[in-house]
Amino acid sequence: RQDLNFGQVVADILCEFLEVAIHLILYVREVYPSGIFQKRKKYNVPVQMSCHPELNQYIQDTLHCVKPLIEKNEAEKVVVVIMDKEHHPVERFVFEISQPPLLSISSDTLLSHVEQLLRAFILKISVCDAVLNNNPPGNIRVLLQKYTTNTDFPWIVADEQEVHMQEPRLIPLKTMTSDIVKMQLYVEERAQK
């Protein structure tokens, strides 16, 4: 237990959380038909998770690539972008992640405290449609903003049109500060959808 890699633990916790959060965003914002979602319990609250193999594969593969960057504290933002049919973003869920300098001790109490904080994010996502306007039919992408360019990273630079949003409305959803991670979630919404 002593040589438990702390960065790895944080990355595991965050990626598990991001997976649940992405599924829930897709459900709440009606990106995909509700028929592919099933009710589950995560962080002791009900959530909706997709049962569609291809969609689940996309989310899993994406987070599989994000994980090593979180581990190394190189991921600045993980962004779930909802796009219209012309591939212009209409809504962006931005997870801004930062980790304080590494701690040497981890305790179960500390981790369960983090779970409580993550639950609050999930609850906020569940009700976020109350403060957002409906989206036109479209698609999603998961983007990543990172500090450095590693040549071995298998992703490509996003197109300008997938990233640029004119005068977005900013809606803060939740912020958490714990000993192992700081995270902020906000939505950027295009004025005209």
Binding site: T62, G138, N139, L144, I156
Partner: peptide
Amino acid sequence: GGGGAHILKPLMSPPSREEILNTLLDL
């Protein structure tokens, strides 16, 4: 762009809403 931040996307794309609707209809 600029400022040292890089915005990246995976090479793969998720299935579209239409593709998923079609698979639901096929069931």
